[in-house]
């Protein structure tokens, strides 16, 4: 038996908290090992120091004060709260909590997937990211050709097209 193991178990050995076989081995070891025997005496000494340390008595009326608080607590618990609170408490007590959380998660995921599917399928949205669009002249899209070096219409026409309700999409 190693000294380190014995020292670790000495306090339990003093308490009689070890199985008989281990306790016997430790006893045998203690007869042979002065170092461990010395540790045992130190642990015993520490035990002795804590003996007879005074403890003040329980305060007077401790139980009466406690029972008063306990009864108040019971009364408060018996008073029914608003319907919403009671419903929430009932919900908390039932095993529905996890099932509802799981259902909400599944529904959320389904809605997310449907919305994502719709976006993915739409050709308009898909064309936004189309690289061909980047090559189209922006002045042609927004009828801003008057800003170019060779304008087709007059600046007045371009202005009217811009501010009109149709924004120049219809001619």
């Amino acid at each position: 038996m190693r000294c380190r193991y014995v020292k670790q178990k000495l306090d339990r050995y003093i308490q009689g908290d070890l199985p008989g076989s281990i306790s016997d081995k430790i006893q045998l070891h203690l007869h042979k090992c002065n170092n461990c025997a010395h540790t045992l005496s130190r642990i015993n000494k520490l035990d002795g120091i804590f003996e007879n340390t005074p403890l003040p008595p329980v305060p007077e009326d401790f139980s009466e004060r406690l029972m008063q608080r306990a009864r108040q607590m019971q009364c408060l618990q018996q008073v029914p709260g608003p319907v919403v609170v009671r419903l929430w408490e009932w919900f908390g007590r039932t095993s529905l909590k996890k099932s509802v959380a799981a259902a909400v998660l599944v529904v959320g995921l389904a809605i997310g997937t449907l919305m994502g599917w719709d976006t993915w399928q739409s050709p308009d949205v898909q064309s936004v990211g189309d690289s061909r669009m980047a090559q189209v002249e922006p002045t042609a899209i927004y009828n801003l050709d008057y800003l170019t070096s060779a304008p087709k219409g007059s600046p007045t026409d371009a202005y009217l097209m811009l501010v009109s309700a149709t924004n120049g999409r219809e001619r």
């Binding site: 329980v58 401790f62 139980s63 406690l66 029972m67 306990a70 009864r71 019971q74």
Partner: peptide, 15 residues
């Protein structure tokens, strides 16, 4: 909900 039983517990274990 038996408060007398609770009082017994308190008396036993208050120390």
């Amino acid at each position: 909900g038996n408060m007398e039983a609770f009082e017994q517990i308190v008396i036993r274990y208050q120390q």
